[in-house]
Computed example of a mutant assay.
Amino acid sequence: MSSPKRALITGITGQDGSYLAELLLEQGYEVHGMVRRASTEKFDRIEHLRDRITLHQGDLLDQRSLVDTLRAAQPSEIYNLAAMSFVALSWVQPTLTADFTGVGVTRMLEAVREAAPEARFYQASSSEMFGKVREVPQTEQTPLYPRSPYGVAKVYGHFITINYRESYDLHATSGILFNHESPRRGLEFVTRKITWHAAAIKHGLRDRLALGNLDAKRDWGYAKDYVEAMWLMLQQDEPEDFVIATGSTHTVRDCVQVAFDEAGLGDWERYVEIDPQFVRPAEVDLLIGDPTKAKEQLGWEPKTTFEELIRLMTRADLELLAR
């Protein structure tokens, strides 16, 4: 019997990393993850997988550690999901964001060239690269105009991946993923902030929810659906970039309505206040992805509707806070 395929996931402790690890384990992979040494270890999203995966200490800011991790894991597939992922924080720490989310990709690609040149590489690109959008909906060909230090760093990571693919014949692919959420989303992200607060208000633990722009529109999908697209991309003979999205948008207000309805709280406006600190210096316009190419070439489409997603997140938070 041939030995199982080996995959390395950077950012395995994050939302996407944990769902991807589950998917790859189901597919019979040997799964390795890269984690950063931190003063507070945050492994809650992968706690239930700890005995089935191998963790390596490495850091996107440290070239040597990346080479060592690749040599130890010997992966045939590498999923680079590690980044400074919270857009709002990227204004507070713009150069650190550039270093992790942009230059970190180059360090990783250099390590791949050195230690795993045959491996297939996935780069987590982002709809935030479209920013001030040039066309609606956005496809793989839409010009980029990022509107945050995070978006700018992601553009760098995106193009350096294309560059290495074309220059060194690496099987390197970027997935341009639009917003994707789940019960494992961090509390600082607006959808999870909303579902958590709806549950907390229902349980009498909070009485208000402070938000920024209620009219901000996003193309929101379910992270569990989206990691499947990442995997499918690396199963293709030719490396190409793909937009992964639902193709429909909803406002922050829509999200609030669904979450408060699921929590059994009638009049959501009683609980929501607008706080200027949550309004971004530069808002992105209408982010809406066209996933046609992914559907045609990967056979991928989202299985979970926006409403189902917000309801399942709210139910998960109602359960979480009931404990």
Rank of each mutant, 00 (worst) to 15 (best):
P291L: 10
L49V: 02
N163V: 00
T314P: 08
Q297S: 04
R208T: 14
G151C: 10
W300K: 04
R37H: 07
D225R: 10
L177Q: 03
R206I: 01
E273S: 14
D59A: 08
T106F: 01
D267N: 15
L25D: 07
F306Y: 14
Q27L: 11
L70C: 04
T101M: 05
R218E: 09
T40A: 06
L70A: 02
G17S: 04
D254P: 06
V284T: 14
L286N: 13
L265D: 03
T69L: 04
Q138C: 15
E114C: 07
L70V: 05
T101W: 00
Q93E: 13
A38Q: 13
G186V: 12
Y156F: 15
P146Y: 11
E77D: 15
A111R: 05
R192F: 13
K42A: 02
S174P: 00
V258E: 02
V136Y: 10
L287S: 12
L287D: 09
R36M: 02
E240N: 13
G186R: 12
V190D: 04
R113N: 06
P302V: 07
E77V: 06
P302H: 12
V256A: 05
L318P: 02
L209M: 06
A119H: 01
A21R: 05
V243I: 15
D169M: 05
F121G: 04
K5Y: 06
L234I: 11
D62L: 11
P276F: 10
I46T: 00
F306P: 02
Q27M: 14
P149R: 11
F306I: 05
E128V: 14
G131N: 02
W231I: 07
E269M: 14
A153S: 15
L25W: 09
C255T: 15
Q236N: 03
D16S: 12
L312A: 08
D59Y: 02
D219R: 08
D275T: 11
R107Y: 11
E307W: 02
C255Q: 14
W196N: 15
A259T: 01
L96P: 05
R36Q: 10
V256I: 05
R280W: 12
P183H: 07
A316F: 02
R315Y: 08
E228T: 15
A199Q: 08
N163L: 12
T195L: 10
E41D: 09
H250T: 03
I12S: 06
P143G: 04
S3W: 06
K154W: 13
Y226T: 09
R218Q: 13
E301D: 06
P4Y: 03
D68Y: 03
R218P: 00
V133A: 08
T139G: 04
T251W: 08
L89T: 04
G17I: 04
Q123M: 09
T142K: 05
Y226I: 03
Q74H: 11
L214P: 10
R45T: 07
S148H: 06
T173N: 02
I244T: 14
L70M: 08
Q63C: 00
Y19F: 15
N213V: 10
P183S: 13
R270V: 13
